[in-house]
Design a protein around this nucleic acid. Structure first.
Lengths: 153, 153
DNA sequence: GTATTATTCTTGAGTGTGCAAGTAAAATGC
DNA sequence: GCATTTTACTTGCACACTCAAGAATAATAC
């Protein structure tokens, strides 16, 4: 007689994190495709433009950018290369520290960001249409609690 | 005089999705590292084992597995190869349809899943320690609403 | 039954990512 | 000042993933 091990459900917290992951993956794929086909940039590239625009002077050290978007330093190097090539950002040198190189938003980058933001907002509206503002606020605060670092709001 | 464009904050819903993504990425990286160092499997491999265990008979068609874990068919082919090699799963043929190949959990796979689940639960507890059960339930229902397909609970 | 279309899976090519190692420069210790 | 350590960045390598194309089989149309 074969031993049948009953498949068990996971505890609520494990299941929640699994669902968080799957849901976020689906959302990212959708955003990647939409932003890619409409504006020619990936979601992660949008994130770069956005964070640069938020930074004073529209510029950041590469290492700070890397931490902000949860990528490695080498990841940032390779991510920025094509963005420099098409003129969305430029590479500048720090006068104080010869090790650091600064990545700065160009006018073209600012324009692309503005256009892409319109699409992003529409897509986000659509994607979150099923939950109301009250629920939204709750999820927002729960996410902030979960995060291992301060989140923008 | 230089034109200064004021950096604007994003609408709440766009910002929420951005935060959801970042939070989920951090969580995934943490899980990957922990499960990898302790049990030698990636988070995505854990997900495979888990879904196989949930399926009747501990087996699934590759294409169904792919949809469940939000990966492409080719992604599943390459993901399963090393797992077959170390004996966590086996490849079987369908008698009804010669096109499909079935992936089935082995005893070793079941055992690895059981061990890894213990770690996963501990990690999940720790990761979600900052929110209480009530908030947890709210996030759970919000996630279910956001998802484009039914989520397990 | 035969032709056409759809489905399942695998493979090749291209892309994106991290890690480890290497380079250069700054900071620290003495 | 000089040696050591730390920091910022880039590059080589390995790996995971997708898409497009191809092979085999099933389903559908007629």
């Amino acid at each position: 007689m074969p031993v049948v091990t009953k498949a068990r459900k996971l505890p609520q917290r494990s299941q929640l994190l699994l669902n968080l992951w799957l849901c976020s993956e689906d959302h990212r794929q959708m955003m990647d495709q939409s932003l890619g086909s409409i504006h020619g940039i990936a979601y992660i590239e949008y994130l770069v433009l956005h964070h640069l625009a938020q930074a004073p002077g529209g510029a950041l050290r590469r290492i700070d950018l890397a931490r902000t978007i949860s990528r490695s330093a080498s990841g940032v190097t390779r991510l920025l290369r094509p963005m420099e090539k098409i003129g969305l950002v430029t590479k500048e040198h720090s006068e104080r520290d010869a090790r650091v190189s600064i990545v700065a938003l160009t006018d073209a980058g600012r324009e692309r960001l503005r256009d892409a933001t319109r699409s992003l907002n529409q897509l986000s509206e659509k994607f979150t249409a099923s939950i109301n503002d009250k629920e939204l606020a709750r999820v927002e605060s729960a996410l902030a609690a979960l995060a291992t670092r301060p989140l923008a709001s």
